[in-house]
Amino acid sequence: MSADTTTRAAVAEKETTFYGLVASFDKIDEFLAAVAEVRDAGFSRWDTHTPFVVHGLDAAMGIKPTKLPFVVFGAGLTGCAAGIGLQWFTNAFDYPFMISGKPIFSLPANIPVAFEMTILFSAISALLGMLVFNRLPQLSHPLHSSRLMKRATDDRFLISIEAADPTFDPIKTRELLESLGPLQVEAVEA
């Protein structure tokens, strides 16, 4: 119990001093191999930063598929129900319209609006869901103060490991990163 508290205190102290380590690469091959090594070293609080989607990186990092499609599917169903409900309520329930002797409520005439509402709800949920799952917008983050990070949106491939990770060790982790042949390793302040 006391050992656990000490570790936590140590981790908390580490967090206040520095955020973690960042290593940069410029070749995809070397980068992917390094990522697989870091994954196998058993880190959990680490990430990679690339200027574009690197195929094979999800597998190299061991990222599980996102739940986003289920959210979007749910939103689509909601949109469809809202579209049909709106038309039923306005034209068949609240103020029934009798036009050309057609049925007061007929599904075929309601399909276009129901379809558009399905798409509208799903599309909005796809963008918002992506942002919520990614915890964006997050305008302030320790990594934004890293010099190496400036080029992660240009032409560099980065691996970042947080000091808060239980297997993180300031010396050993730096040695591990340096053994992977990066261009540079940088300590990032919290």
Partner: peptide, 21 residues
């Protein structure tokens, strides 16, 4: 840019959202 930090964990969901859109 909403504080985008090119994270691959973010790219992963970004790509899925893009595909869905």
């Amino acid at each position: 840019s909403l504080g985008w930090r090119s994270s691959n964990r973010h790219w992963h969901r970004f790509e899925m959202a893009y595909l869905l859109l």
